[in-house]
Amino acid sequence: MNKILILDIDGVLITNPSWKADRIHSDGYSEFNESCVENLNRLLTLAEFDIWLSSTRRTVKTLTEFNLIFKNRGIKKQIFGFLPEYTNCRNRKEEVLKFITEFKVSDFLIIDDDKSLNGLESGIKERLILTELTKGFNSEKLKEATERIKNCS
């Protein structure tokens, strides 16, 4: 079974400050930070991942539309699925926990900038790569993710 990559977009692949409008790609969707995309592609060569999108942006596009957006930005792997929209979850931490429990996920990595994830229990938090909004999945976070993959295998 493949590892699960629970992936956010804003603050991971899109690194614009929240007060600034997104740069728009020729396909009409937000531009991704190219070095963050390169780092994601490097990570995807280290293990077989199924990408599950956790971004709130998952609520406004279909899986097919997002896979085209990822392809247009040079991401080498398609998105496997979206985290379900759980109506009773108040934050990303609760969504991730419910997903892990419901789908019985045991081999995973989370890449997100959502600070609520700091509240995860230690066994899950050790699989979290917490990025910063304007830095995203930079080379420092790629190194951290590489170490996590080695240590959690």
Score class of each variant (00 low, 15 high):
110 I>N: 00
143 K>C: 06
142 L>Q: 02
25 H>Q: 08
67 N>Q: 11
117 L>V: 03
146 T>Y: 08
10 D>I: 05
12 V>N: 09
141 K>T: 02
10 D>R: 13
1 M>I: 07
109 L>K: 00
105 V>I: 03
100 I>Q: 13
134 T>S: 05
54 S>I: 01
15 T>P: 02
47 A>M: 03
52 W>Y: 14
13 L>H: 11
62 T>N: 06
14 I>L: 13
136 G>I: 05
142 L>A: 07
75 I>C: 10
4 I>C: 05
10 D>N: 15
86 Y>M: 10
23 R>M: 06
145 A>S: 12
74 G>P: 14
6 I>N: 09
84 P>D: 14
146 T>N: 04
125 K>G: 02
88 N>A: 09
152 C>S: 14
5 L>N: 05
122 S>T: 10
90 R>T: 11
32 F>K: 06
125 K>H: 10
101 T>L: 10
127 R>I: 01
127 R>W: 01
65 E>T: 12
94 E>P: 11
97 L>F: 07
71 K>L: 06
112 D>P: 13
10 D>V: 05
29 Y>S: 01
90 R>Q: 14
135 K>N: 07
151 N>Y: 14
125 K>F: 02
91 N>W: 14
62 T>A: 06
113 D>Q: 05
7 L>K: 07
15 T>C: 15
66 F>G: 08
64 T>A: 13
60 V>S: 12
2 N>Q: 10
93 K>T: 09
65 E>F: 03
68 L>Y: 13
44 L>W: 08
101 T>A: 14
78 Q>Y: 05
21 A>G: 04
88 N>K: 08
107 D>M: 03
144 E>D: 10
41 N>T: 04
115 K>F: 07
86 Y>Q: 10
83 L>W: 00
